[in-house]
Design a protein around this nucleic acid. Sequence first.
DNA 1: GCAATATTAAACCAAGTGGTTTACTATTGT
DNA 2: ACAATAGTAAACCACTTGGTTTAATATTGC
Lengths: 116, 116
Amino acid sequence: MRASADDQLDRVFHALSDRTRRALINRLADGPRMITELAAPFDMSLPAVSKHLRVLEEARLVDRAVDGRVHRCSFAPEPLREAEQWLDRYRSFWEDNLEALARYVEPKKKRRRSNR
Amino acid sequence: MRASADDQLDRVFHALSDRTRRALINRLADGPRMITELAAPFDMSLPAVSKHLRVLEEARLVDRAVDGRVHRCSFAPEPLREAEQWLDRYRSFWEDNLEALARYVEPKKKRRRSNR
DNA sequence: GCAATATTAAACCAAGTGGTTTACTATTGT
DNA sequence: ACAATAGTAAACCACTTGGTTTAATATTGC
């Protein structure tokens, strides 16, 4: 029943690929919230938000503590670190671009990593 | 016809949510490749890979230069920077976790950002 | 000219997505 | 006991996804 690292990255990036879910993360980063609270600002039904939260939970980006009839959701940042680690392998590429831009507007520094 | 920043993030994270597409990016990071070359290691049909490349192109993660019958694809890193910038707003959260772990295994440094 | 090569197009399919509405369950306050 | 509240479940829908296979198009080498 081994969930591969690829499975986990699939789930995390998928979870992040919807703006409603990104907004939910953003609100949760301010602190735990019950589901009705979380859903309030969104122009969609409560079950719709509930499903989005489930996707976030499956990606382990959200934890849920049930207390009576209230489900209190909290932000679980760890998977974002995994996503960031994947991106990090390509950081030098886009940083090169920034450097290229810097060279263009302010041609002072010397280039690094010109071999591509 | 304004493509919002959210649209772009939707497309990029969606593009990254499939391991085949992540693997394609990984190969392209070694340098431009024609499509047949790119498709070779994958256990799927050429049209399937072609579709994945289209998804990557729509997310602007891949550029294509057509030269005769050969389409040469190259890695376009810029959108990864945008994705990383989104993630960056939450970096302190998972770095806190690393600090917590560090404190646990090697309880020497003092804590920062304990207020959550 | 013609066969081989590189690639997309089109039609199809099963499964998944993102939303709805209408129940339903469980808990709480009075 | 009962009404209100918090949330999920289930059924449904249109659309998308990720794959297939079978054309079709364009270019190249001989």
